[in-house]
Protein backbone atom coordinates (compact mmCIF):
# COMPACT_ATOMS: atom_id res chain seq x y z
CA UNK A 1 0.00 0.00 0.00
CA UNK A 2 1.37 3.45 -0.87
CA UNK A 3 1.18 6.30 1.63
CA UNK A 4 0.72 9.92 0.72
CA UNK A 5 0.91 12.72 3.25
CA UNK A 6 -0.31 16.12 2.02
CA UNK A 7 0.35 19.50 3.66
CA UNK A 8 0.00 18.28 7.24
CA UNK A 9 0.03 20.79 10.06
CA UNK A 10 -0.11 19.92 13.73
CA UNK A 11 0.16 22.14 16.79
CA UNK A 12 0.29 21.09 20.43
CA UNK A 13 -0.77 24.23 22.21
CA UNK A 14 1.66 26.86 20.99
CA UNK A 15 4.25 24.33 19.87
CA UNK A 16 4.26 23.59 16.15
CA UNK A 17 5.06 19.90 15.75
CA UNK A 18 4.49 19.71 12.00
CA UNK A 19 4.59 22.66 9.64
CA UNK A 20 3.16 21.93 6.19
CA UNK A 21 4.67 18.47 5.71
CA UNK A 22 4.17 16.47 2.51
CA UNK A 23 5.66 13.05 1.81
CA UNK A 24 5.09 10.33 -0.79
CA UNK A 25 5.94 6.75 0.15
CA UNK A 26 5.65 4.27 -2.75
CA UNK A 27 4.27 0.80 -2.05
CA UNK A 28 6.76 -1.74 -0.75
CA UNK A 29 9.44 0.72 0.32
CA UNK A 30 11.16 0.96 3.67
CA UNK A 31 11.42 4.64 4.56
CA UNK A 32 13.17 6.22 7.53
CA UNK A 33 12.01 9.44 9.18
CA UNK A 34 15.28 10.79 10.54
CA UNK A 35 15.68 13.81 12.76
CA UNK A 36 16.65 15.09 16.19
CA UNK A 37 14.15 14.89 19.06
CA UNK A 38 11.42 17.46 18.69
CA UNK A 39 11.66 17.47 14.89
CA UNK A 40 8.13 16.08 14.54
CA UNK A 41 9.03 12.65 13.20
CA UNK A 42 7.08 10.67 15.79
CA UNK A 43 4.08 12.98 15.43
CA UNK A 44 4.11 12.37 11.67
CA UNK A 45 4.25 8.61 12.23
CA UNK A 46 1.37 8.75 14.71
CA UNK A 47 -0.68 10.81 12.26
CA UNK A 48 -0.11 8.18 9.56
CA UNK A 49 -1.22 5.54 12.09
CA UNK A 50 -4.34 7.47 13.12
CA UNK A 51 -3.22 7.76 16.75
CA UNK A 52 -3.02 11.52 16.28
CA UNK A 53 -5.06 13.72 13.97
CA UNK A 54 -3.66 16.63 11.94
CA UNK A 55 -4.99 20.19 12.32
CA UNK A 56 -5.12 20.36 8.54
CA UNK A 57 -3.85 18.38 5.59
CA UNK A 58 -4.65 14.86 4.41
CA UNK A 59 -3.35 11.30 4.61
CA UNK A 60 -4.01 8.87 1.76
CA UNK A 61 -3.47 5.12 1.53
CA UNK A 62 -3.36 3.93 -2.10
CA UNK A 63 -4.95 7.19 -3.19
CA UNK A 64 -7.93 6.86 -0.82
CA UNK A 65 -8.34 9.65 1.71
CA UNK A 66 -8.24 8.15 5.22
CA UNK A 67 -7.61 11.33 7.21
CA UNK A 68 -10.81 10.89 9.25
CA UNK A 69 -10.45 7.17 9.87
CA UNK A 70 -9.42 5.95 13.31
CA UNK A 71 -6.38 3.79 13.97
CA UNK A 72 -8.72 0.83 14.29
CA UNK A 73 -10.06 1.29 10.76
CA UNK A 74 -6.74 1.95 9.04
CA UNK A 75 -5.26 -1.54 9.18
CA UNK A 76 -1.77 -0.42 10.14
CA UNK A 77 0.80 -2.35 12.11
CA UNK A 78 2.37 -0.15 14.77
CA UNK A 79 5.45 -1.04 16.77
CA UNK A 80 5.93 1.15 19.82
CA UNK A 81 9.25 2.38 21.13
CA UNK A 82 8.76 0.70 24.48
CA UNK A 83 7.11 -2.35 22.90
CA UNK A 84 3.73 -1.83 24.64
CA UNK A 85 3.24 -5.59 24.92
CA UNK A 86 0.21 -6.67 26.94
CA UNK A 87 1.95 -7.56 30.17
CA UNK A 88 -0.71 -9.94 31.46
CA UNK A 89 -0.73 -12.02 28.27
CA UNK A 90 1.75 -14.62 27.09
CA UNK A 91 3.77 -14.17 23.91
CA UNK A 92 1.25 -16.36 22.09
CA UNK A 93 -1.75 -14.37 23.37
CA UNK A 94 -0.03 -11.10 22.50
CA UNK A 95 0.49 -12.14 18.89
CA UNK A 96 -3.00 -13.64 18.61
CA UNK A 97 -4.70 -10.53 20.07
CA UNK A 98 -5.36 -8.75 16.77
CA UNK A 99 -7.02 -11.86 15.30
CA UNK A 100 -9.09 -12.61 18.39
CA UNK A 101 -10.64 -9.15 18.74
CA UNK A 102 -12.10 -9.17 15.23
CA UNK A 103 -15.87 -8.98 14.90
CA UNK A 104 -17.37 -12.46 15.04
CA UNK A 105 -18.11 -12.72 11.32
CA UNK A 106 -14.47 -11.96 10.42
CA UNK A 107 -12.84 -13.84 13.27
CA UNK A 108 -10.62 -16.67 12.04
CA UNK A 109 -10.92 -20.18 13.45
CA UNK A 110 -8.85 -21.33 16.43
CA UNK A 111 -6.79 -23.55 14.16
CA UNK A 112 -6.02 -20.65 11.83
CA UNK A 113 -4.98 -18.44 14.76
CA UNK A 114 -2.70 -21.14 16.11
CA UNK A 115 -1.11 -21.75 12.72
CA UNK A 116 -0.65 -18.03 12.07
CA UNK A 117 0.91 -17.36 15.48
CA UNK A 118 3.24 -20.35 15.12
CA UNK A 119 4.29 -19.15 11.69
CA UNK A 120 5.13 -15.70 13.13
CA UNK A 121 6.95 -17.25 16.10
CA UNK A 122 9.15 -19.08 13.59
CA UNK A 123 9.73 -15.83 11.73
CA UNK A 124 10.93 -14.07 14.89
CA UNK A 125 12.80 -17.17 16.05
CA UNK A 126 10.97 -17.47 19.37
CA UNK A 127 9.14 -20.80 18.88
CA UNK A 128 10.10 -21.96 22.38
CA UNK A 129 8.96 -18.83 24.18
CA UNK A 130 5.24 -18.93 23.25
CA UNK A 131 4.06 -19.39 26.84
CA UNK A 132 6.33 -16.84 28.44
CA UNK A 133 5.22 -13.44 29.66
CA UNK A 134 6.78 -10.22 28.30
CA UNK A 135 8.52 -9.57 31.63
CA UNK A 136 10.45 -12.84 31.15
CA UNK A 137 11.91 -11.77 27.80
CA UNK A 138 14.94 -9.66 26.93
CA UNK A 139 14.56 -6.30 25.21
CA UNK A 140 15.40 -7.65 21.78
CA UNK A 141 12.97 -10.54 22.17
CA UNK A 142 10.21 -8.20 23.26
CA UNK A 143 10.79 -5.98 20.27
CA UNK A 144 10.47 -8.99 17.97
CA UNK A 145 7.24 -10.06 19.67
CA UNK A 146 5.88 -6.53 19.19
CA UNK A 147 6.74 -6.80 15.51
CA UNK A 148 5.08 -10.21 15.18
CA UNK A 149 1.97 -8.91 16.94
CA UNK A 150 1.75 -6.04 14.46
CA UNK A 151 2.26 -8.36 11.47
CA UNK A 152 -0.35 -10.88 12.66
CA UNK A 153 -3.25 -8.75 11.41
CA UNK A 154 -1.62 -8.56 7.95
CA UNK A 155 -1.51 -4.77 7.89
CA UNK A 156 -1.19 -2.72 4.72
CA UNK A 157 1.62 -0.66 6.20
CA UNK A 158 4.05 -1.21 9.05
CA UNK A 159 4.96 1.77 11.23
CA UNK A 160 7.80 1.58 13.73
CA UNK A 161 8.54 4.24 16.36
CA UNK A 162 12.25 4.20 17.29
CA UNK A 163 12.15 0.42 16.97
CA UNK A 164 15.62 -0.13 18.37
CA UNK A 165 15.82 2.94 20.58
CA UNK A 166 15.89 1.16 23.92
CA UNK A 167 18.23 -1.69 23.01
CA UNK A 168 21.95 -1.88 23.56
CA UNK A 169 24.37 -1.33 20.68
CA UNK A 170 25.07 -4.95 19.70
CA UNK A 171 21.44 -6.14 19.73
CA UNK A 172 20.49 -3.00 17.83
CA UNK A 173 22.86 -3.81 15.01
CA UNK A 174 21.65 -7.41 14.76
CA UNK A 175 18.02 -6.46 14.92
CA UNK A 176 18.20 -3.77 12.26
CA UNK A 177 19.86 -6.15 9.81
CA UNK A 178 17.16 -8.65 10.66
CA UNK A 179 14.48 -6.00 10.01
CA UNK A 180 15.98 -5.21 6.60
CA UNK A 181 16.02 -8.92 5.78
CA UNK A 182 12.46 -9.31 6.97
CA UNK A 183 11.36 -6.40 4.79
CA UNK A 184 13.00 -7.97 1.77
CA UNK A 185 10.97 -11.12 2.45
CA UNK A 186 7.60 -9.62 3.36
CA UNK A 187 7.71 -6.45 1.18
CA UNK A 188 5.28 -4.48 3.27
CA UNK A 189 5.37 -0.67 3.00
CA UNK A 190 7.21 0.36 6.14
CA UNK A 191 8.03 3.65 7.83
CA UNK A 192 10.29 3.86 10.82
CA UNK A 193 11.30 6.75 13.02
CA UNK A 194 14.86 7.11 14.23
CA UNK A 195 17.30 9.72 15.47
CA UNK A 196 20.24 7.47 14.58
CA UNK A 197 21.72 8.36 11.19
CA UNK A 198 23.59 5.05 10.84
CA UNK A 199 20.37 3.16 11.39
CA UNK A 200 18.50 5.24 8.81
CA UNK A 201 21.26 5.01 6.22
CA UNK A 202 21.82 1.29 6.64
CA UNK A 203 18.28 -0.02 6.78
CA UNK A 204 16.09 2.17 4.59
CA UNK A 205 15.37 2.50 0.88
CA UNK A 206 14.78 6.19 1.33
CA UNK A 207 15.37 8.67 4.11
CA UNK A 208 13.29 11.73 4.97
CA UNK A 209 15.38 14.09 7.09
CA UNK A 210 13.24 16.20 9.42
CA UNK A 211 14.00 19.32 11.39
CA UNK A 212 11.72 21.63 13.39
CA UNK A 213 8.51 20.24 11.98
CA UNK A 214 9.60 20.27 8.34
CA UNK A 215 11.09 17.76 5.94
CA UNK A 216 14.50 19.05 4.86
CA UNK A 217 15.27 16.42 2.25
CA UNK A 218 13.95 13.11 0.95
CA UNK A 219 16.21 10.77 -0.95
CA UNK A 220 18.11 7.51 -1.02
CA UNK A 221 20.71 7.08 1.75
CA UNK A 222 23.39 7.78 -0.88
CA UNK A 223 21.70 11.02 -1.97
CA UNK A 224 21.14 12.48 1.46
CA UNK A 225 24.65 11.58 2.60
CA UNK A 226 26.58 12.65 -0.48
CA UNK A 227 24.37 15.42 -1.83
CA UNK A 228 22.80 17.06 1.21
CA UNK A 229 20.26 19.67 0.18
CA UNK A 230 20.61 21.92 3.22
CA UNK A 231 23.25 22.75 5.83
CA UNK A 232 21.09 20.98 8.41
CA UNK A 233 21.15 17.69 6.50
CA UNK A 234 24.89 17.96 6.00
CA UNK A 235 25.36 18.64 9.67
CA UNK A 236 23.02 15.93 10.88
CA UNK A 237 24.30 13.12 8.69
CA UNK A 238 27.78 12.32 9.82
CA UNK A 239 30.51 14.40 11.40
CA UNK A 240 31.34 17.65 9.72
CA UNK A 241 33.60 20.69 10.04
CA UNK A 242 31.92 24.03 9.56
CA UNK A 243 33.99 26.90 8.15
CA UNK A 244 33.49 30.22 6.44
CA UNK A 245 35.01 30.58 3.02
CA UNK A 246 34.53 30.86 -0.72
CA UNK A 247 35.01 28.86 -3.88
CA UNK A 248 37.46 30.09 -6.50
CA UNK A 249 38.50 28.08 -9.59
CA UNK A 250 37.19 24.80 -8.15
CA UNK A 251 39.16 25.30 -4.98
CA UNK A 252 37.57 25.94 -1.62
CA UNK A 253 39.30 28.59 0.43
CA UNK A 254 38.75 28.75 4.16
CA UNK A 255 38.44 32.22 5.75
CA UNK A 256 39.23 33.25 9.23
CA UNK A 257 36.55 35.93 9.36
CA UNK A 258 32.85 34.99 9.31
CA UNK A 259 32.40 36.27 5.75
CA UNK A 260 31.62 34.57 2.46
CA UNK A 261 29.69 31.30 2.33
CA UNK A 262 29.24 28.39 4.73
CA UNK A 263 31.67 25.60 3.96
CA UNK A 264 31.05 22.06 5.22
CA UNK A 265 33.86 19.52 5.05
CA UNK A 266 33.64 15.94 6.30
CA UNK A 267 36.60 14.95 8.51
CA UNK A 268 37.85 12.30 6.04
CA UNK A 269 37.88 14.88 3.19
CA UNK A 270 40.51 17.04 4.88
CA UNK A 271 44.13 16.48 3.95
CA UNK A 272 46.93 16.97 6.46
CA UNK A 273 50.55 17.67 5.46
CA UNK A 274 53.67 18.79 7.29
CA UNK A 275 54.45 21.51 4.73
CA UNK A 276 52.28 24.11 3.00
CA UNK A 277 50.79 22.32 -0.01
CA UNK A 278 48.02 23.60 -2.27
CA UNK A 279 47.23 27.35 -2.15
CA UNK A 280 44.06 26.74 -0.10
CA UNK A 281 45.80 25.02 2.80
CA UNK A 282 45.76 26.63 6.23
CA UNK A 283 47.86 26.25 9.33
CA UNK A 284 46.77 24.40 12.46
CA UNK A 285 48.17 22.78 15.59
CA UNK A 286 47.32 19.18 16.50
CA UNK A 287 45.76 18.83 19.91
CA UNK A 288 44.58 15.28 20.33
CA UNK A 289 45.08 12.04 18.42
CA UNK A 290 42.89 8.94 18.73
CA UNK A 291 44.42 6.04 16.84
CA UNK A 292 42.02 3.33 18.11
CA UNK A 293 39.74 1.97 15.39
CA UNK A 294 39.92 1.71 11.62
CA UNK A 295 40.36 5.46 11.20
CA UNK A 296 42.69 7.76 13.09
CA UNK A 297 40.86 10.78 14.47
CA UNK A 298 42.85 13.97 14.89
CA UNK A 299 41.69 17.11 16.61
CA UNK A 300 43.51 20.28 15.66
CA UNK A 301 43.06 24.02 16.18
CA UNK A 302 43.50 26.65 13.46
CA UNK A 303 45.61 29.74 14.00
CA UNK A 304 42.41 31.70 14.63
CA UNK A 305 41.26 29.22 17.26
CA UNK A 306 38.62 27.17 15.41
CA UNK A 307 38.56 23.41 16.09
CA UNK A 308 39.11 21.04 13.13
CA UNK A 309 38.37 17.32 13.04
CA UNK A 310 40.34 15.22 10.59
CA UNK A 311 40.10 11.50 9.89
CA UNK A 312 42.70 9.49 7.99
CA UNK A 313 43.63 5.87 7.39
CA UNK A 314 46.06 4.09 9.71
CA UNK A 315 48.45 3.79 6.77
CA UNK A 316 48.55 7.50 6.07
CA UNK A 317 48.92 8.18 9.79
CA UNK A 318 51.94 5.90 10.01
CA UNK A 319 53.71 7.59 7.07
CA UNK A 320 53.02 11.07 8.55
CA UNK A 321 54.09 10.10 12.09
CA UNK A 322 52.13 12.92 13.65
CA UNK A 323 52.29 13.76 17.34
CA UNK A 324 50.24 16.16 19.41
CA UNK A 325 51.29 19.82 19.48
CA UNK A 326 52.73 19.84 15.97
CA UNK A 327 52.20 22.49 13.29
CA UNK A 328 50.40 21.03 10.27
CA UNK A 329 48.84 22.30 7.05
CA UNK A 330 45.28 21.29 6.28
CA UNK A 331 43.52 21.55 2.91
CA UNK A 332 39.96 20.52 1.94
CA UNK A 333 39.82 17.88 -0.79
CA UNK A 334 36.09 18.25 -1.26
CA UNK A 335 33.54 20.50 0.38
CA UNK A 336 29.90 21.47 0.28
CA UNK A 337 29.33 25.19 0.07
CA UNK A 338 26.07 26.83 1.04
CA UNK A 339 25.26 30.49 0.70
CA UNK A 340 24.54 32.18 4.02
CA UNK A 341 20.77 32.07 3.41
CA UNK A 342 20.96 28.29 3.33
CA UNK A 343 20.55 27.52 -0.39
CA UNK A 344 23.08 25.24 -2.05
Amino acid sequence: MSISVRNIRKNFGRFTALDDVSLEIPAGQLVALLGPSGSGKTTLLRIIAGLEFPDCGAVQFDGTDITDRTARERRVGFVFQHYALFRHMTVFENIAFGLRVRPREFRPSKEYVRAKVNELLRLIQLQNQANRYPSQLSGGQRQRVALARALAVEPGVLLLDEPFGSLDAKVRLELRRWLRQLHDEVHITSVFVTHDQDEALEVSDRVAVMNEGRIEQVGTPDEVYNQPATPFVYNFLGNVNLFHGRVDHDRTYIHEAPTGDLVFVRPHLLDIARHPGPPNSFRATTRHINAAGPLVKIEAVTDWGAPVHVEMSQERFRTLRLATGEIVFISPKEAAVFQKNGAA
Binding site: R72, F78, F80, R87, G98, V101, R149, A150, V153
Partner: peptide
Protein backbone atom coordinates in the same frame (compact mmCIF):
# COMPACT_ATOMS: atom_id res chain seq x y z
CA UNK B 1 -1.61 4.79 27.15
CA UNK B 2 0.77 2.57 25.21
CA UNK B 3 -1.02 -0.72 25.65
CA UNK B 4 -4.41 0.83 24.84
CA UNK B 5 -3.01 2.41 21.69
CA UNK B 6 -1.47 -0.91 20.70
CA UNK B 7 -4.85 -2.60 21.14
CA UNK B 8 -6.47 0.11 19.04
CA UNK B 9 -4.05 -0.32 16.13
CA UNK B 10 -4.64 -4.08 16.31
CA UNK B 11 -8.32 -3.46 15.65
CA UNK B 12 -9.81 -3.71 19.15
CA UNK B 13 -12.82 -1.54 19.95
CA UNK B 14 -13.25 0.61 23.04
CA UNK B 15 -14.97 -2.05 25.15
CA UNK B 16 -12.61 -4.80 24.01
CA UNK B 17 -9.64 -2.61 24.90
CA UNK B 18 -11.14 -1.86 28.29
CA UNK B 19 -12.04 -5.42 29.25
CA UNK B 20 -9.04 -7.18 27.71
CA UNK B 21 -6.23 -4.68 28.31
CA UNK B 22 -7.02 -1.93 30.83
CA UNK B 23 -9.01 -3.93 33.38
CA UNK B 24 -6.65 -6.93 33.71
CA UNK B 25 -3.80 -4.52 34.37
Amino acid sequence: NDEEEAALTLGAGGWQTFFRVTLPN
